[in-house]
Design a protein around this nucleic acid. Sequence first.
DNA 1: CGGGCATTTGAAGCTGATCAAAATCAGTGG
DNA 2: CCACTGATTTTGATCAGCTTCAAATGCCCG
Lengths: 241, 241
Amino acid sequence: MSRPLERFIRRLELRSRLSAGEKAALLAIDAELVVRQARWDLVRPGEKVDFACLVSRGIVGRSETFADGRRQTSAIFIAGDMADLHSVPVPVAAWALTALTDVEVFHVPHEALRAVAREFPRVAEALWRDTVADGSATSKWVAVLSRHPARKRLAHLLCEYGVRYAAAGLGRAEEFELNLTQDQLSEILGTTAVHVYRTFKDLRAEGVIATERRSIRILDGAALARIAEFDPDYLLLDNSP
Amino acid sequence: MSRPLERFIRRLELRSRLSAGEKAALLAIDAELVVRQARWDLVRPGEKVDFACLVSRGIVGRSETFADGRRQTSAIFIAGDMADLHSVPVPVAAWALTALTDVEVFHVPHEALRAVAREFPRVAEALWRDTVADGSATSKWVAVLSRHPARKRLAHLLCEYGVRYAAAGLGRAEEFELNLTQDQLSEILGTTAVHVYRTFKDLRAEGVIATERRSIRILDGAALARIAEFDPDYLLLDNSP
DNA sequence: CGGGCATTTGAAGCTGATCAAAATCAGTGG
DNA sequence: CCACTGATTTTGATCAGCTTCAAATGCCCG
């Protein structure tokens, strides 16, 4: 694609209104396309970066590894997400950004983003707003992870992923590919791969979802949302402001 | 105090460089002082606000309540913290801000902050940067909460609080008042009050900390940091940029 | 000095972790 | 097309950490 930020602008417009001039300035930014295999670390903790990673294909995870080797993924990013928008004001990574599947990522130069933000205060606010949305999702995840058992956590993840996947224009909220292994899911859900399996099994047995290979079909969205206590407000996706 | 934002500017300066003019513009902002007792909700979920809450005294928590009445606190804020800086770009609260102790809070008008941010791009970036720091701490908490047993979680909280308390110029990292009940701590640590008590007891028995009423004395900071796997980088407090 | 919180203590039970291993699948090369 | 290989999913058994419930003690404030 000749205009790497096209999809990112559509993402921003889910939360912010942008003028034609503002969009044109963003569209004019050039970015290097990088193709990586699953497991590749796009950014390592402590690394100083001068670009932000815009996901174009596949899934990127933000994760942290502990002394005993166990890992926790605190966010996942899909096509259209700027995985480390926070690196623009804070260019030293505090976590790893890892390719969870084979991915295509644009390296968007910080300096170009900063220049547009300086010139257009509403772009600056739009970027700030998307950073807030990231924090909002993370904050929600603190609560879900800490207070819900695995079945509610998984239900919540499926609800959120479906909504985000649909909002990104990548598919339907009721049926999508979740291209993550149960091991990767366990690192998001704060549990073990074994338990992820059993949890999937329970949800299938209840007739709430169906799985086939890595595609998820939500048979009873209302039930799933009830199990998860899912309320999409925290994703800040209704373009009201 | 005639200049409500004085302490907030010092907080910003821990992470961003500001010119005299930029500081003056922030200092000129007027804000209403509000005094509340413990348990008071400063902001309720879903509420539309046109001001941000700058903590002046006491502790404010950001928390979420579930259907069964259990609560999770995803962040705590001390004097100098803008508890809901994120409300400037996103003025609809997704969570409650609650006074965990008796508090004094300044209501800082969004419009005033936005005006300064529009005029001074570096102020905009400083505010953005502090939002990133909030997200960074939240993201760390996802990992800690999800992967560490209660003893490491408590150790981590004590390390973080000490560092933040000292950075805010409110005391020393090795000895401070943690004016929270064990019940409130359990809502931060994702456990129960009973378990918080037992965890404190264990850490005391190991000689790592001492407690007296609600004051905490860290006897062996190195051991506490080791237990917690604490590395303060994620707080983004070294004024390097 | 009494009432309301908060802390401390005890006992029982459950959820999810851990460890081990079998079954299945995806991809590779003969 | 099949055998082989490594990764992932599925299954089973045991156990630790934490929750839950109940109650006693301690502390602060009016």
